[in-house]
Amino acid sequence: MKESAIKIENVEFNYGHLKVIDHVSLEIPKGISFGLLGSNGAGKTTSIRLMLGLLKPNKGNIFCLGREPSPANAVNTGYMPQLPSLYNELTVRQNIDFFAHIYGLKNAQQRRKRVDEIIQLVELMPKRDVSVVQLSGGMKQRVSLACAIVHQPPLLFLDEPTVGLDPELRVHFWEYFENLTAAGTTLVISSHTMDDAAHCRQLAFMREGKIIAQGTPAELRAAVGKPDASLEDAFLFFIRHGEVKSNVQ
């Protein structure tokens, strides 16, 4: 088994009296796409915030690339939030350049070259000097992805990255993601769509702050016991059977 990119040990997190993450343990190998699947409110975004260090667990430990999340280690991570979270008045280039700078690309010439590369990668060259506010939703998502990967982080968190995208753009996004994992980047992707789940190398199904099942898509489908079971069937199967502790690996 590959070395872990993320190790979560018995983590619990509460918002006030509300338990949002309930004793979650998880180990994500390096260089794969790992999907956190679950319905709205299952705890996917909170899990990502915990892994980024934006929230602190009430109990348990989290290690990203062997270290606890902190600003000093954040240079090794990229984050694409659920909302595009961009500076609307700034152009595509200015937004990406800003994130490139704060993630450590200080040399202006190198940064410019890298920003151009990434704009080309997300196919926004004709729009590079257009304000973000003037872009379509799909284009904003592409800028947001570019901001998250411009510094080439080994670990990338994508919170519902394909929400609101048309089918063609979703295919493009998954091509980007597969190229990233091929280059050794670990992707942690939250989603509630089974289309996304099918692209992930490994999955964890979440419900009410708990991981109810974990494994490869094939393993999860096989657990249903029907030859033609889909991932949706698998998800419903695990929900109906309550908490299936550990995983099907």
């Binding site: 980024l52 260090g53 934006l54 600003p71 000093a72 954040a74 240079v75 991570t77 984050y79 939030p81 659920q82 909302l83 595009p84 979270s85 961009l86 500076y87 609307n88 994130f99 704060i102 993630y103 450590g104 901001c147």
Partner: peptide, 14 residues
Amino acid sequence: SLGTRERLMASPVS
């Protein structure tokens, strides 16, 4: 409200 502050907080800036 736009989420840019959270994005900034997830970065290496102090």
